[in-house]
Design a protein around this nucleic acid. Structure first.
Lengths: 356, 356
DNA sequence: AATCTCCGTGAAAACGATTACGTTGGCGCC
DNA sequence: GGCGCCAACGTAATCGTTTTCACGGAGATT
C-alpha cells in the first residue's frame, strides 16, 4: 500500500495532524523548527495530500474545465497550449472535454464536470444564454470564448473578427482591388458573422459604389472550392476574393488554378486565421492572424481573476486584436495607400460589474 | 447556495441517505417504486454527487491524466481527440498537462497529478525508466506512448516507425531510386532512431551495394533546409531524400527549389508523419501516415483495460501500423515492383504478464 | 506576584458521499 | 403460532483533509 496519509506524517514527526497541515500549507501557527521537521518527514515519506479529501473540505478543486467543440488542427492545440501555460503558472489543473458537435453532448459534458472544477472556459459557437442557464450552475465562474452571448453573468473573450476583416478589405483596396467578393462561414457562427460584418462595413467605406458580392461557404476547404467556381461563373469575376477563413481560401485557390487563373495577377485572394498551411501553399496566402495562444492565456487569466475575488465578481468583456499578414496572394501595394490606416493589435478591454 | 447534497434529496424523498445512494448507483436494495421516487426528486433538485466526496471513499477519481511534451499542431490535437473520444465513451475525465520541455517540469506535473487520476498516459520522448520510477507511484496504471522504455511495469504503445520507414525506402527503390539519403531526427528521440533503423535495414535489403547517406536534422523545417543544402553540396547529389519527418522534408524542398532542382524529376523527396501541410505544398509530399487519433484511442483503451482488472494487471506492448501515402514528390512507379511487398496496417499486439 | 496575552499545539468537528452492519416487517414453512 | 429468512431500509463508520476551538505555558504588564 503506497497510500501515505497525513496521519503517517504526523506519527512519524511526533505531532498532531493539525500541525502537519499547518506546516505544509501556510506555515503559520507552527515553530520554524517544528515546521522544518514536519516538512522533512513529509518529503522523506513522499507524502502527497489527497486531493479529494482536501477539496471536500476546502470546496476548491484547483481545477478549471475547458469545453471545446469539434476543433481540428492548429487552432485547438494552440488554444490548449495557451490555457495550459497560464493554468500551470497559477497552479491550476486543466480538465479538458473536446470534440462536441451536438449541443446534447456538450450539455452532458458540462454536467459531468459539475463539482470537479472551480471554473469553466467555454468555446462553443452555438452556445447561447439559454443553454448556459440550463446547464451551468449560476455560481460557477465562467469565461466564454468567441461567443455572441452578451450577459453580465459571464465574462466574454472574443477575437476582433470585425476589425480584422475590415483591415483586410482595406488592404485589398490599397493593393488596387475594389471588386471584392466574400465567402462566408457557416450560418449562426459568431466568428463568421462578425467577419462578414467587417467586410460589409469596409466595403461601404472604401468602395461605396461597388455592390457587395457574397457567396456561401461553411469553413471547409470543399466549400471554398465550390465558392471559387461559383465566383468564376459570374459574368465578370471579381478582382479579389476574401474568404472568411484560410481553409476556404485554399479550396478557392484550387478552383482558380484549375481554371487557369494566376494568383494574384488575375485575381487576388485573402483568408482569415493564419493557419500554418497558409504560408506553405504557393502563392503564400495573405491572411489575418489571430494569436491563439494569447487567446487561451487571456481566457484563463480572466477566469483566474474571477476566481480570486469571487465574493464580488467582476465580469469582463475583452477583445483580442488580430493583424493582417501580407504574403503573396494579394499582389503589390499601390504607391499611395489610403489614409487613416489603423493599427489593430493588443487587447481592448471593457469592464462591467455583475449584478449581485 | 446551490449546493444540494445527498441529504437534501434524502429529506425531500423521505428516505435515508443510504437509500438515495443505492437508488442512484446500483439500484439494488431499494424497491423499484422508492428508487423511482428518489430519482425523480434528485432530478428535480438537480442533484449532482459531489465528486470529491465520492472519490474520497471510493478511491477512484474516474479521471485519467495525460502528460504531453511541447507538441505543436495537428499531432497534438489529433492525439487529444483520440484520447478524449475514448475517454468519454468510457465515462472518464481527462486531465491534461502539456507543453513540458524540461524533465523537471514534467516531473512536477506528474507529482501534481498524484491522487487526482486513476491512471496516466505519458508521451514524452526523453522519459526513461529511472525517471518514471522516481516520479510515478508504482501502483498507478500507466501507458507509455512512443517510448523506448521496456518494462513489465508499464504498458507501451508505439508507432511502427521502423516498418514505416522500411516501407518508404522500398517505395523509393520501386520508383527507381537507389541513391537514397536520409535526414535524421534529433538525437535520443525514440521515433527518430526507429525511423533511421528502418532506413538502414531497408537499404541493406534493397540496395545492398550503395552506402547509406545520412545527414543530421532535428525535426525542424530549418534543419531540413540545411540538410538539403548539405546534400546538394555533395559531389553527386542523391537520387532521393527521405526525411525523418515532414517538416524537414518541407525545408528540404525549399533548398531544392532554391537550387533550381525539379522535384521529383531531378530529385525525389519523402517525409514521415503526413501532417496536413504535406498535401498542400507543391509538389505534394509523399510520406508515411500515422493514424494519430487511433494512437490516442488505443492508448486510452489500453489504460482502461489496465484499470478494469487492476487486481491482476496485464501490461501490454502494442504497435500501431502506418502506411505509405504516395503523392507527387517521388515520381512514378516503375513497371515491375519489387516482389514481396508487405502491407502494414492495423495493430499488432503482444501480451506479457506482469510480475506479481 | 498575580493576571493578561499570546503562541504553539492537539482534539475534534466538519465536508459529502459509500457501504458494512443492524433492524424491521412480511412471508413461508413446519 | 412460532421460527427463520430475506428484502428493504436506516444508522453509523469511514475516507483524508482543514479548521475551529480549547488548553497550557511562557513572557509581558501591572
Amino acid at each position: 500500500m503506497t497510500a501515505v496519509t497525513i496521519k503517517d506524517v504526523a506519527r512519524e514527526a511526533r505531532v498532531s495532524v493539525a500541525s502537519v497541515s499547518r506546516a505544509l500549507n501556510g506555515g503559520n501557527g507552527v515553530t520554524a523548527e517544528t515546521g522544518q521537521r514536519i516538512r522533512e518527514v513529509a518529503k522523506r515519506l513522499r507524502y502527497v495530500p489527497h486531493a479529494a479529501a482536501r477539496s471536500l473540505i476546502t470546496r476548491r478543486t484547483n481545477t478549471i474545465g475547458a469545453l471545446l467543440p469539434d476543433l481540428h488542427g492548429e487552432f485547438f492545440s494552440e488554444l490548449i497550449r495557451g490555457i495550459d501555460l497560464a493554468a500551470r503558472a497559477r497552479g491550476f489543473h486543466l480538465l479538458v472535454s473536446s470534440s462536441h458537435d451536438s449541443g446534447e453532448e456538450a450539455a452532458a459534458a458540462l454536467r459531468a464536470m459539475q463539482g470537479r472544477v472551480d471554473g469553466m472556459l467555454i468555446l462553443s459557437p452555438r452556445v447561447d444564454a439559454a443553454f448556459l442557464h440550463a446547464n451551468l450552475p449560476a455560481a460557477l465562474p465562467t469565461v466564454l470564448l468567441n461567443s455572441a452571448v452578451k450577459s453580465k453573468a459571464y465574462s466574454v473573450l472574443n477575437i476582433d473578427n470585425y476589425t480584422g476583416a475590415h483591415a483586410m478589405v482595406q488592404h485589398l483596396v490599397e493593393t488596387g482591388h475594389t471588386q471584392i467578393a466574400f465567402i462566408t462561414g457557416p450560418e449562426k457562427n459568431f466568428d463568421a458573422e462578425q467577419r462578414e460584418m467587417g467586410y460589409r462595413a469596409a466595403m461601404a467605406k472604401y468602395a461605396p459604389d461597388v455592390a457587395v458580392n457574397i457567396v456561401a461557404g461553411d469553413f471547409t476547404e470543399d466549400s471554398g472550392y465550390h465558392a471559387g467556381r461559383t465566383l468564376l461563373a459570374q459574368p465578370t469575376h471579381p478582382q479579389a476574393v476574401f474568404a472568411a477563413n484560410d481553409m476556404m481560401a485554399v479550396g478557392c485557390l484550387y478552383a482558380f488554378k484549375e481554371a487557369g487563373l494566376n494568383v494574384p495577377q488575375d485575381i487576388a485572394l485573402a483568408g482569415f486565421d493564419d493557419i500554418p498551411i497558409a504560408r506553405y501553399i504557393s502563392p503564400a496566402l495573405t491572411t489575418v492572424r489571430v494569436r491563439i495562444v494569447d487567446l487561451g492565456r487571456s481566457a484563463l487569466e480572466q477566469l483566474a481573476a474571477l476566481l480570486e475575488n469571487s465574493d464580488q465578481p467582476l465580469t469582463t468583456a475583452q477583445t483580442l486584436g488580430c493583424e493582417v499578414i501580407v504574403r503573396e496572394t494579394c499582389g503589390k501595394r499601390l504607391a499611395t495607400p489610403l489614409p487613416n490606416r489603423k493599427q489593430n493589435s493588443g487587447i481592448r478591454s471593457f469592464l462591467s460589474g455583475r449584478e449581485s
